[in-house]
C-alpha cells in the first residue's frame, strides 16, 4: 500500500529528497543530523532530529535500565562486603575480569546463546556496569576511617545504621565515580544494541546500506556528544552529592588511599 503511494506520489509524497552529492564527509554528516533525507536504498526518509531523537530515547532508556539495575545489585553488595571487610579478592578480580571481557564478545555470546530483545541487551549492559560500581563501593567503604566506625559503634549505632549513616555518606564520592564510569561505558556500548534488536543511535552505524556513510558519521558525532554529556553531567551530580564536609578533606583520605593502593580503583573503564 505505502509502496504504491510512494510510486504514485514520487518524492513529493515521501516528504524528503536524496542528499546532494559532492559534499565533504563532515558537512554531509551534519546535514544528516539536522535534516531528513531519502535513504540510500530509497523509499524511506531517514535522519533528521526526529529520527535521531527517537533512536536517542531508546538508546538512553536501555542504558538507564542497565545502570539502575547495576546500582541496585552492586551498591548493596559492595557496602556489605566492604562493611564486613571481606571479599577483597572478589572485588578486585571482578574488576579485572570485567576489563578483560570485550563487550562485543559478551553481547555476541548472549545473542547467540540466550537470544535477542530488550531484556537480554539490558542484561548484558548491566553485567558490564556492575564491576566498576562494585569495586568502587567496596574500596570507598574500606577507605572510611576505622576510627569513625568505632566512634559510631560507641555512640550505640547498630551495624545497619553504621552502614547507612557513616560508611555510605563517607564513601559516596567514590561510589559515584564508579557509577559515572559505568554509565559512560554503558551509553557507549549501547551503540551495538541494534545487534540484539534494540533500537539505538548505533542503528545508522550498523546499517550502512540504509543510512550510508553520512549516517554512520552523523551517528558517531551524536554518540560522542551524548557520551561526553553523560560524563560531564554525572560529574556535576557527583560534585553535588559529595557531602560538603568531605570536599575539602582530601588530605585525610589520601593517607588511607595510599595504604589501599594495591587495590586498583577503576575510575574510568573504557568500553566501546
Amino acid at each position: 500500500m505505502s509502496a504504491i503511494l510512494a510510486q504514485a506520489g514520487g518524492d513529493a509524497m515521501l516528504g524528503c529528497e536524496p542528499a546532494p552529492a559532492d559534499r565533504g564527509a563532515f558537512v554531509d554528516a551534519l546535514d544528516f543530523i539536522v535534516s531528513q533525507r531519502e535513504s540510500i536504498s530509497g523509499g524511506v526518509c531517514i535522519g533528521g532530529p526526529g529520527e535521531l531523537l527517537d533512536l536517542g530515547a531508546s538508546h538512553m532508556l536501555v542504558s538507564l535500565v542497565a545502570v539502575v539495575a547495576a546500582i541496585a545489585i552492586a551498591v548493596p553488595a559492595g557496602l556489605w562486603l566492604g562493611h564486613r571487610g571481606r571479599g577483597e579478592f572478589l572485588a578486585v578480580s571482578i574488576s579485572n575480569v570485567g576489563r578483560a571481557v570485550p563487550s562485543l564478545a559478551l553481547l555476541a555470546f548472549f545473542i547467540a546463546f540466550v537470544g535477542i530483545g530488550f531484556t537480554n541487551v539490558a542484561l548484558v549492559l548491566t553485567l558490564l556496569a556492575i564491576p566498576p560500581i562494585l569495586t568502587n563501593t567496596y574500596v570507598g567503604v574500606r577507605q572510611v576511617d576505622r576510627e569513625s566506625v568505632d566512634a559510631a559503634r560507641g555512640v550505640g549505632m547498630s551495624e545497619g545504621q553504621i552502614v547507612r549513616r557513616v560508611e555510605l555518606p563517607l564513601a559516596i564520592a567514590t561510589i559515584f565515580s564508579g557509577i559515572r564510569t559505568s554509565a559512560v561505558a554503558v551509553v557507549a556500548t549501547a551503540t551495538i544494541a541494534p545487534l540484539g534488536n534494540v533500537q539505538s543511535l548505533g542503528n545508522p552505524i550498523l546499517e550502512p546500506q540504509t543510512y550510508g556513510s553520512a549516517g554512520q558519521l552523523g551517528a558517531a558525532i551524536v554518540i560522542a556528544l551524548i557520551t561526553l554529556a553523560t560524563d560531564v553531567g554525572l560529574g556535576l551530580v557527583q560534585r553535588a552529592a559529595t557531602p560538603k564536609g568531605l570536599a575539602r578533606t582530601s588530605y585525610h583520605t589520601s593517607e588511607r588511599r595510599k595504604r589501599l593502593s594495591t587495590i586498583p580503583i577503576p575510575r574510568r573503564t573504557q568500553t566501546p
Binding site: 564527509a25 563532515f26 551517528a219 558525532i221 554518540i223
Partner: peptide
C-alpha cells in the same frame, strides 16, 4: 586525554574514517 577516552571507540573509528 580524558575527553579522548570518553568518546566511544566505535564512534571514534567512524569519526576518523573520513
Amino acid at each position: 586525554t580524558g575527553a579522548l577516552y570518553t568518546v566511544p571507540s566505535i564512534a571514534a573509528f567512524f569519526l576518523l574514517l573520513p
